[in-house]
Amino acid sequence: MYRCYPVSFIEKSDLEKGDKIIMPPSALDRLASLHIEYPMLFQLKNPSAGKVTHCGVLEFVSDEGIIYIPYWMMENMLLQEGDIVNVKNTNLAKGTYVKLQPHTKDFLDISNPKAILETSLRTYSCLTTGDTIMVAYNNKKYYIDIVETKPSPAVSIIETDCEVDFAPPLDYKEPEKQAKSILSDRKQPLVEDEPPAKIARFSPFTGSGRRLDGKPSTQPVEQISSPELKQKQTDKEIKGSDSKSSNTASHRPHGKLVFGSNATTSGTQTTPKVSQTNTNQEKSQKEEEPTFKAFTGKKYSLKS
Score class of each variant (00 low, 15 high):
residue 50 G to L: 14
residue 60 F to G: 00
residue 126 C to W: 01
residue 134 M to E: 11
residue 132 T to N: 14
residue 158 I to M: 07
residue 259 F to G: 13
residue 255 G to N: 13
residue 147 V to E: 11
residue 21 I to G: 02
residue 52 V to P: 04
residue 250 S to K: 12
residue 278 N to G: 02
residue 155 V to D: 04
residue 257 L to V: 13
residue 222 E to A: 07
residue 76 N to P: 13
residue 260 G to N: 15
residue 58 L to N: 01
residue 129 T to F: 02
residue 253 P to Y: 12
residue 34 L to E: 13
residue 71 Y to S: 11
residue 116 I to A: 02
residue 268 T to N: 13
residue 8 S to T: 06
residue 130 G to Q: 05
residue 203 S to W: 03
residue 252 R to G: 10
residue 176 E to P: 04
residue 188 Q to A: 15
residue 219 Q to I: 11
residue 50 G to I: 12
residue 236 K to I: 03
residue 221 V to P: 08
residue 41 L to R: 05
residue 96 T to A: 01
residue 141 K to N: 12
residue 113 P to C: 12
residue 3 R to Y: 11
residue 284 S to N: 11
residue 158 I to S: 04
residue 90 T to W: 00
residue 210 R to I: 09
residue 82 G to H: 10
residue 175 P to G: 07
residue 266 S to P: 05
residue 7 V to W: 02
residue 45 K to P: 02
residue 199 I to Q: 10
residue 63 D to F: 02
residue 289 E to R: 15
residue 126 C to D: 01
residue 20 K to C: 05
residue 108 L to M: 12
residue 11 E to T: 05
residue 283 K to F: 14
residue 183 L to V: 07
residue 52 V to R: 04
residue 88 K to N: 09
residue 165 D to C: 14
residue 10 I to Q: 00
residue 256 K to P: 01
residue 215 K to R: 07
residue 25 P to F: 13
residue 121 L to F: 03
residue 275 S to Y: 09
residue 40 M to E: 03
residue 15 L to N: 07
residue 28 L to Q: 12
residue 128 T to V: 01
residue 301 S to Y: 08
residue 188 Q to I: 13
residue 100 L to K: 03
residue 39 P to H: 05
residue 143 Y to G: 05
residue 45 K to V: 13
residue 272 P to I: 06
residue 128 T to P: 00
residue 303 K to S: 15
residue 205 F to Q: 06
residue 287 E to L: 14
residue 109 D to Y: 13
residue 67 I to V: 15
residue 65 G to A: 05
residue 276 Q to S: 15
residue 91 N to Y: 01
residue 31 L to Y: 08
residue 8 S to P: 00
residue 131 D to P: 00
residue 254 H to P: 02
residue 48 S to P: 00
residue 220 P to F: 02
residue 40 M to I: 10
residue 304 S to V: 06
residue 61 V to Q: 07
residue 263 A to H: 12
residue 129 T to C: 02
residue 138 N to L: 11
residue 126 C to T: 07
residue 89 N to M: 04
residue 159 E to Q: 01
residue 191 V to L: 08
residue 151 P to N: 10
residue 114 K to P: 00
residue 98 V to I: 11
residue 26 S to P: 01
residue 300 Y to I: 04
residue 216 P to E: 11
residue 191 V to E: 08
residue 236 K to A: 05
residue 70 P to L: 14
residue 149 T to D: 05
residue 116 I to H: 06
residue 197 A to G: 08
residue 201 R to M: 09
residue 109 D to G: 08
residue 294 A to W: 08
residue 121 L to G: 00
residue 27 A to W: 05
residue 52 V to C: 04
residue 107 F to Y: 09
residue 46 N to K: 10
residue 300 Y to F: 06
residue 40 M to R: 02
residue 38 Y to V: 09
residue 142 Y to A: 09
residue 182 I to S: 10
residue 216 P to C: 01
residue 272 P to H: 03
residue 294 A to D: 06
residue 167 A to I: 10
residue 76 N to F: 11
residue 146 I to Y: 01
residue 190 L to H: 10
residue 299 K to S: 07
residue 34 L to H: 04
residue 265 T to Y: 15
residue 237 E to C: 09
residue 5 Y to G: 03
residue 46 N to P: 11
residue 28 L to S: 05
residue 86 N to V: 14
residue 285 Q to T: 14
residue 209 G to Y: 11
residue 38 Y to N: 06
residue 174 E to S: 06
residue 31 L to K: 01
residue 24 P to T: 03
residue 47 P to T: 08
